[in-house]
């Protein structure tokens, strides 16, 4: 019984990965691609690792460490990349919002 539950969790996680890849392919702009790629794949990773923990309960501690690590590092690296993309003035699809229409140097000072 726990095997079927674990495999269903793995299937949902794989579906999130599939949607991350699809978003990376179909989105119109570099920033939206980064957003699609990071959010969905982090959650998909967490679900797949929890699903594997259903199969092998003895592995839970190391899988939990892996989930914690992916949750900590994936958003931070995507944030650093998006900041760099803003600083080198990658073009956005559609008109930029008014507050960010000023010089990109404003993105470098402050947090």
């Amino acid at each position: 019984m726990s095997e079927v539950a674990g495999s269903i969790l793995v299937l949902i996680g794989a579906f999130f990965h599939f949607s991350a890849g699809l978003g990376m392919l179909r989105m119109p702009d570099a920033f939206t691609r980064m957003q699609a790629g990071t959010k969905a794949s982090t959650l998909g990773n967490a679900l797949i690792l929890i699903g594997i923990a259903f199969y092998h309960p003895g592995w839970s501690l190391k899988l939990l460490i892996l989930i914690y690590f992916v949750f900590m590092t994936n958003p931070v690296s995507s944030h650093a990349l998006a900041r760099a993309a803003r600083a080198i003035r990658i073009p956005m699809a559609g008109p930029p919002p008014q507050a960010l229409a000023s010089a990109p140097a404003a993105a470098r000072d402050g947090a």
């Binding site: 690590f69 900590m72 590092t73 944030h79 650093a80 947090a111």
Partner: peptide, 18 residues
């Protein structure tokens, strides 16, 4: 020589010992 953004600095404080 300017430091990285605040999010990266905070994450590095947690991640380097780990």
């Amino acid at each position: 020589a300017q430091p990285a953004s605040e999010i990266v600095r905070t994450a590095a404080q947690i991640l380097v010992p780990l």
